[in-house]
């Protein structure tokens, strides 16, 4: 069963002559455990699509189904609950709460629902150990490096065992070495824990970690690159993705 089904999704900004079709009849199916990268030039609609999927923004036409649940017409409360229970988020700027410690930041989304605090803390500690932050659990975010902060944000996104993880330019604030490390972590989570991940990025090196790369241009999906079971070398994948992006830019 698809974790995410997007059917005929359209979004129009503005009115009259200044009307802009941000999304134009998008059709998309993502299966459980899939790692999908969405690429495109600026203004292609990739971030808008992510916001529609997460219920952060409203759409004009079409349907979004998360684990078969159609979110159309959902109230603010229902969308909030959906995000809390089924979606994990990773942002470019990490968005950690500065007054909370690392473990508190990680457990924060789960604190709204989980009753057993000890179990929750154990799970958070285990996940933090997995990403190499075991010795920083009581530290405040401002004492961590950018890479460390993004790892905290990844663990936070995973704490509720979401069916779908949405990452908007997760490596945008990181250097290339740290970016690679970050993407390896995300890849491992998908492979080993079966999480479904959608990453919006403009970096071909990041997209190369995905099973499938979707290319967007002017609000439509113009191409798809399936990398699952591909025998291509990493640098070849990066080169193909980069050339496709270049084509779109022209």
């Amino acid at each position: 069963m698809s974790v995410l089904s997007v059917r005929g999704l359209s979004k129009i900004y503005g009115q009259g002559q200044s009307q802009v079709k941000a999304l134009n009849h998008i059709e998309l199916e993502i299966e459980k455990g899939e790692f999908v990268a969405i690429m495109g030039t600026s203004g292609s609609g990739k971030s808008t699509l992510l916001n529609m999927i997460s219920g952060l923004d409203t759409y004009d036409q079409g349907e979004v189904l998360i684990s078969g649940e159609n979110i159309k017409g959902y109230s603010d409360y229902e969308l909030t609950r959906l995000r809390r229970e089924k979606i994990g988020f990773i942002f470019q700027l990490f968005n950690l709460i500065p007054v909370l410690s690392v473990i508190e930041n990680v457990t924060l989304p789960a604190m709204l629902t989980v009753e057993n605090k000890k179990e929750l803390e154990k799970k958070a500690t285990d996940l933090l150990n997995l990403v190499g932050l075991g010795s920083y659990i009581q530290s405040k975010p401002n004492l961590l490096s950018g890479g460390q902060q993004q790892r905290v944000a990844i663990v936070r996104a995973l704490i509720n065992d979401p069916e779908l993880i949405l990452a908007d330019e997760p490596t945008g604030s990181l250097d290339s070495k740290t970016s690679k490390a970050m993407m390896s972590i995300l890849r491992n989570f998908c492979d080993e824990l079966g999480h479904t991940l959608i990453v919006v990025t403009h970096d071909a090196n990041v997209a190369a970690y995905a099973n499938r790369v979707i290319f967007m241009h002017d609000g439509i999906i113009c191409d798809t690159l399936n990398l699952k079971n591909s025998n291509l070398m990493d640098h070849e994948v990066v080169r193909i993705i980069a050339s496709k992006i270049e084509e779109l830019s022209l």
Partner: peptide
């Protein structure tokens, strides 16, 4: 961000 993480209004 808190709203995104599941905090209702």
């Amino acid at each position: 961000m808190l709203r995104v993480l599941g905090y209702t209004k």
